[in-house]
Design a protein around this nucleic acid. Structure first.
Ligand SMILES: [Mn+2]
Ligand SMILES: [Mn+2]
Ligand SMILES: [Mn+2]
Ligand SMILES: [Mn+2]
Lengths: 218, 218
DNA sequence: GTATTAAGTTAGTCTTAACTAACAAATTAG
DNA sequence: CTAATTTGTTAGTTAAGACTAACTTAATAC
């Protein structure tokens, strides 16, 4: 079994290698707020454990094993977030820090029970997919709200870059997953959008916000 | 804030000093499965933090602060056990190890929510009292089943020395908290009891078992 | 294509929390 | 009351995971 520290390195490697498939020591160091020499050392240790492919001066690549174990920790994180929101009544802005701790609990039974009580959820409270018990996960083909055109009718599907502040911002505007939104207009200068939803007849959203909202067209 | 390790020393000190009010380094060492020199060192560190009164060669005594912090960890442990049983459907024999981990989660909100959802429970699934938010707790004046006499009618109130094996033993005999038990006879030689409850018309319980069951007379 | 800058590694140090070996104090036995 | 045993302490070591300082390799700039 891995230490809590190793689990956090795994998660960071997994998150950062989303696009390129590999991560630099520097990026990992910045993401974890841990100095580069410490990261190098840990990578050697994790290479020995077959969690990561490591060669001096080369980018870091998770092994198949490393990828699966990372996904299983993320599964525990997201199941926990969903459980806290659905079964305990927490807001979607309150659950990340608690899940960050509970994801390290060693108890297959606990997470199996959460999954069962939630009826095997596919998404967490932020619309992010929950990896299955084998560590498999797939994103649906969502669009960013920022890429939509005036007249489009869309449904809120997921939030990316989910900080407390951003989620509270969305709360204040009553924007939540599943919400149907109509795009009224787009300011060509700065791509600010004017949208309409529920009883909000004219809400203005900056491009910064719109780039963080994933939607389904329909 | 204290480390997970310090929290476990606090709990052990609290548990072991139940009767005498103090603990020997030796007892603590055995209880935690940690060698005596390590314990001595940690006691000096915790004395510096005002969690324990430490003087060379003298018994260890928790400070008021130490006692309160220990009780608050135990509160988290027992709230968790109760939550797992009442809200998630775990058996009373399954929850201790999970609670042993969750008790270290740093999130006042999580435990406040558990308490709220459980309607501020006073006892855990084993009948043990849950300390309140100020670390205050009191045991009711229960008797051991082993101290009861033939003819007595009692109600199961709590289990002491709650190992998985013992709790599974009770499960097999359908013995649970709140159960009404009538003492039919006591074998004078070894204090074995013959008892009757629900549809169990004649169940024989060894003295070892009876000493671990706390009951209320009525 | 060399010089500068950025990224990565090596070597050595620190802290926490464990250990063993050796010694000292306290307790218990005779 | 002394001797043996148990309990507790001191000193020194170890492993994990962090750090800084110094050096090396790779990338970028001119
Ligand atoms: Mn999260
Ligand atoms: Mn999430
Ligand atoms: Mn317990
Ligand atoms: Mn309990």
């Amino acid at each position: 079994m891995h230490s809590l520290v190793e689990e956090n390195y795994l998660k960071a490697l997994f998150a950062l290698s989303k696009d390129k498939g590999s991560v630099s020591v520097n990026d990992l160091s910045k993401h974890l707020n841990i100095k580069m020499p410490t990261v190098t050392n840990m990578m050697k240790k994790m290479a020995f454990k077959k969690l990561v492919h490591y060669e001096s001066y080369k980018p870091l690549i998770l092994t198949k094993k490393g990828k699966k174990e990372a996904a299983l920790i993320i599964r525990k994180h997201r199941l926990t977030e969903m459980y806290l929101v659905e079964k305990m009544g927490f807001g979607w802005e309150e659950v990340h820090n608690i899940a960050e701790q509970i994801e390290h609990i060693k108890s297959p039974k606990l997470f199996a029970k959460m999954a069962e009580l939630l009826d095997y959820p596919k998404f967490d409270p932020h619309g992010t997919p929950i990896p299955d018990i084998n560590g498999e996960m797939e994103w649906k083909a969502y669009s960013k709200l920022s890429e939509c055109k005036p007249g489009d009718m869309v449904k809120m599907a997921a939030v990316i870059n989910t900080t407390d502040e951003f989620l509270k911002f969305l709360n204040r505007r009553e924007i939540h997953l599943g919400l149907k939104i109509k795009i009224k207009s787009v300011e060509p200068f700065d791509n600010t959008m004017v949208v309409k939803y529920k009883n909000h007849l004219e809400e203005t959203l900056s491009n910064t916000v719109c780039k963080r909202l994933l939607v389904e067209r329909f």
